[in-house]
Design a protein around this nucleic acid. Sequence first.
RNA 1: GCGGGCGUGAUGGAAUGGUAGACAUAUCGGACUUAAAAUCCGUGGGCCGUCAGGCCGUGUGGGUUCGAGUCCCACCGCCCGCACCA
Length: 855
Amino acid sequence: MSRYDPATLEPKWQAAWDEAGTFLATRSADKPKYYVLEMFPYPSGRIHIGHVRNYTMGDVIARYKLANGFNVLHPMGFDAFGMPAENAAMASGGHPADWTYQNIDTMVAQMKPLGFGLDWTRMFATCDPEYYGQQQALFLDFLEKGLVYRKNAVVNWDPVDMTVLANEQVIDGKGWRSGAEVERRELTQWFFRISDFSGELLDALDRLDDWPAKVKLMQANWIGRSRGLQFAFGLVEPTRGHDRVEVYTTRPDTLLGASFVGISPDHPIAKELEAHDPKVAEFCALARKGGTTEEAIEKAEKLGFDTGLRVRHPFDTAWELPVYIANFILMDYGTGAIFGCPAHDQRDLDFARKYHLPVISTFVPLRGEHVTPEDGGAAYVPPKSETVRWTLPFAWDEEATGETAIEAAIAFCESKGVGHGVTKFRLRDWGLSRQRYWGCPIPVVHCADCGVVPEKKENLPVELPKDVGFDVPGNPLDRHPTWRDTPCPRCGKPAKRETDTMDTFVDSSWYFARFTAPHAATPTDMAEAAYWMNVDQYIGGIEHAILHLLYSRFFARAMQICGHLPEKSIEPFDALFTQGMVTHAIYQTRDEAGRPVYHFPEEVELRDGKAFLKDGTEAEIIPSAKMSKSKKNVVDPVNIIETYGADTARWFVLSDSPPERDVEWTAAGAEATNKHLARVHRIATDIAASTEEGSPEADEALLREMHKTIFDVTNGIESFGFNAAIAKLYAFTNTLQKSQAGSAAKRSAMKTLAQLMSPMTPHLAEEIWAMLGGAGLVANAPWPKADEAMLVSDTVTLPIQINGKRRSEITVPRDAAKEEVEKIALADDAVVKALAGGQPKKLIVVPGRIVNVVV
RNA sequence: GCGGGCGUGAUGGAAUGGUAGACAUAUCGGACUUAAAAUCCGUGGGCCGUCAGGCCGUGUGGGUUCGAGUCCCACCGCCCGCACCA
């Protein structure tokens, strides 16, 4: 008798699928299409158990849809540009391209043994000139349609290395290599006009029915539509060409609580003052210290500088307010200037207290204790929908909500000629310029005579030069004269290429469209895109909830405008699923200095819930941490496949934990999974050899369970409840093993079990299918259908609650009338005892669910 | 700091507002075996009880409801994102 041996069985079936071309995506009119896509990986070097989980989920869907008669597109590629390749080149020489392509080869070799049903013929990497050349073509089309432009924006500047730093390269406000304090510096950069689509991107969220609500909420908050008042404070004394400060506020109702005006250090007035006043320049330099992230700016100490300028309050020309330059005001949002109302904004209150500015409450709660900020309380910031008592209303009732007051304030201000109501969005334009080598070159040329000139499409791709070095900081393209110097595409005179490359988010914003025609001579092939788009199911990490998904939604719109996608693809992802991470315990000891030392799971032995190193030292176990190389709590899928096989890895990452939540990888769990699969194999082998007769009752009972299992597993897969589906498969395996049914019924049940398992453990399923004489490949066999008649039984068991606590249960006919159920329930011993001869206060019967007797 | 999410036995987790702990893992007990492994059967939230059964129990504290793990409010802890990590 053969035993379960994944090492021979898995390559055998993979070869069979390859030979049959089972997973090649083919376009045909006779079948509906289904496009399932997992977010493609960055080629870091090795695949990670988290990748296994992500791609297994996609594969379950792909295989399930194939069995349901769809033409399935399930492709794979690599998000291959980015900083790690340059870092590797800096650290150990070599070229980013070599490092990247070697990593891709390694990862493909690691992924193939997992038996994913992928169409590998469509694979590409975003660093392939064929791909990024088409991306450059897209850029030129966007440029022509006015979807790209140039403007100044701030970057992290390392004043020692004289280079731009990514946010992750700024650690505690200092450059990661130089250790120098980082400054925010302005640079001219390319931008996509995503903010022109703010309203549309926000409104369209409502139509994304199969997206998680949390993702839609995060995007809505990120886009951030706000209604407010834009108006100007007149300067008491005009200065250097400025006579007013334009501000935007979402709280015009608190105008009478204004105590100062704040402007960004990058505001035109601040810059004007900076140029002529060393003290202002000194402060602005201080205010520009630190990284560019909103987090860094929000957490930094709030600093202000009194410019000495004064503005008049729009309602009262005698009321003068000071103008401060403040480090927490962003030039990118609104007008780069605000008015501070300390009583109703904690940040403004902190600022006012620091600089001894007045605090004026304009409203208080309707009732309850309240310490006003004037008396040392916190800023009072209730939800705008809450009704409050106004101490300083100017166009509405004493009792009103913030919402009412804001609208009334805007109307009042407009009638007085003080500004106008406007709708603004928090979403900023997308800066795509990167001062780096390993990215898609921006295909424009800077000509002294013609200005910025797009490269001609026939000259695409503008390929990255190979002969570059990374021994000095900065962008090697900048110091590569033969690549940089090029004739102007328009006038032919000597000119210079743009040396900035594109943000890697650009690469990942349209790869899903490229998969529909990966080798087309244009960015997409409209016939292919029209057939395969949209992505029916997109799967990836929640960390991409905002940026990647928002940028992709923008690109789909922009590509549609340029004729590269059909109209229906304006929202490219019909359904989205965000999966959790795979975590693992960290094993940690400490060195003489008390610093932590980490150990790989393979280096420790677990005894009685404790971890020991080979030399007997006990290691501390830190449970369930996100896998990271530096903490050494990583599990290499290659080891798992070698020890247990791909099916074990696939089954384990899907079982136990719900897909949207994190899953803890444990060696014991993997071993137990392997034992279970061996058991299924053994049961199948026994059934294949058996010729026993069974009782009709046992046959019937087994088939009923089988249909229930078909129903539950199908539902589980459809609703991403893979863990629940697997629990049902365990339960059915137990039933099948214990069943006294005859061999014919058992063979039928076993074949169905193999089919139901095939999306998760495809190799074992094929083996069993073949063993029991199934026709063709189980991968192509039509998905089993549950027989509705087999799902219902004649009676149901209802729990009886007395005062909400379960006390008894009754069995009644499935279609029993409510009155009949009440009668049976009232006759129940426990109920009779509880009532003690009296009448129930209330009797609740939920048909088919529960009975609750209130006494 | 701001936005979003999560929290259930020893462990991973199940549960359209309706029997909390399905299914699995660890543990313990038993069968088989000269023995071990493998396999099979059982046990498997806490406390009390000989049994029948009872009381408590879903991060903490309140609330809504006939009924709350699920809905609402506050708090605690952890995770994700914050526009140049991918």
